[in-house]
């Protein structure tokens, strides 16, 4: 019986081969594109292999901050979206509803930084990327009795879960004390009273009992943030492989913590196949083989995004992986993001 990590390694070997072959691009072309866009040649090869053409790869690499919608999330615990929009517009901003969400606003123009609005200081909104808002929608935690945010960071999604379900405990985990201090500030500002945060590695989530909803917005290479200056840096294949190994361990632990009928949303701010579908596939197969229960991919319920990838570097996945949702800066005007929803039978 092969472990999830062993299965992942087999996939990573195939992926590395495809990247070494340049994803179908010539070495000179790879180097030129990488240099032009501040990327690593491996990245260019990954995108060409994933998206199927040089033009698409370049479209992805060429996306910049201005190509991504600037969005915020109205804190519906305190204000509804329309009222917030009116208040921001009265201060000179131009906003419109982010129609894929019930509380998002797209900010077309603003005379001042979003963080400087009094409405922000008073907790009427949270600044959140357009794709970053989607995993919690896919999780649909309304009605769940115990929810975990397994890699909570500064609490953007944990406080979003509180908006959906302010009456059930939201268990937020992170290994960074600094991030949890920021989570504390965010919970206070936004009025999220149902979060219990633990300074711990999510690989130990099993010690906290069973959950009926788990969000694993896993630590990743952050390649989906390439459009932003803060996220633009070269990422060799080795970095992707290291991230995927950690992701497999996190996902396996998180899935094991689901109670019967429970659901988990796995997401990353990366569009790499290796960090997403391959991780999910490796873990689901290993869990199935080990008799740990039956897990299956289900529809995310999101009304946009591309289907999950089922072919990459000679790897073929079952068609159910199309149920995952992929978001690309140059196609969807969002950060690069991948979201999969998994149910335990």
């Amino acid at each position: 019986m092969r472990s999830a990590l062993e299965r992942l390694s087999e996939g990573l070997t195939l992926a590395r081969g495809a990247v070494e072959r340049g994803g179908g691009l010539a070495p000179r072309e790879l180097a030129a594109l990488a240099e032009r866009h501040g990327a690593h040649p491996d990245q260019v090869a990954r995108y060409a292999e994933l998206l199927g053409s040089r033009e698409e790869a370049e479209g992805m690499l060429g996306a910049r901050e201005g190509d991504v919608m600037r969005t915020l999330r109205a804190n519906t615990l305190r204000v509804d979206r329309d009222e917030l929009a009116s208040r921001l517009e009265a201060k000179g901003a131009s906003v419109r509803p982010y129609r894929h969400t019930p509380y998002g606003l797209v900010v077309e123009e603003s005379p001042i930084p979003l963080a400087a609005y009094h409405e922000h200081l008073l907790g009427l909104f949270y600044i959140q990327g357009p794709a970053s808002m989607l995993p919690v929608l896919a999780l649909s935690p309304e009605g769940a009795s115990r929810i975990a945010d397994a890699a909570a960071g500064v609490g953007g999604k944990a406080t979003q879960i509180s908006q959906h379900n302010p009456r059930s405990p939201v268990i937020a985990l992170d290994v960074s004390e600094r991030k949890l201090m920021a989570l504390k500030a965010n919970a206070s500002r936004l009025g999220a009273f149902n979060i219990v945060a633990y300074l711990m590695d999510a690989r130990g989530i099993g010690s906290l009992g069973e959950f009926d909803r788990v969000l694993l917005d896993a630590p990743c290479t952050g390649e989906g943030l390439m459009p932003f200056a803060r996220g633009r840096r070269p990422r060799p294949q080795g970095e992707v492989e290291s991230a995927a190994r950690v992701q497999v361990e996190l996902l396996e632990s998180a899935l094991r913590s689901l109670g019967p009928g429970g659901e988990l949303v796995y997401s990353t701010c990366s569009t790499n196949f290796e960090e997403n579908e391959l991780v999910v596939h490796s873990v689901l197969e290993a869990l199935e083989d080990s008799g740990a229960g039956h897990f299956s991919l289900v529809d995310t319920g999101l009304d946009f995004g591309d289907a999950g990838a089922v072919e990459y570097a000679g790897i073929s996945l079952p068609s159910q992986f199309r149920l995952c949702r992929r978001f690309y800066p140059h196609r969807h005007a969002t950060e690069g993001f991948t979201i999969c929803r998994i149910r335990r039978s």
Partner: peptide
Amino acid sequence: LAVHPSASAEALGGGRPPFLAGVH
């Protein structure tokens, strides 16, 4: 700390001390 009752039960009932419960 001001805590929703569901979260206070969680925070007091677990074996591990939380970093944060509710709002300071």
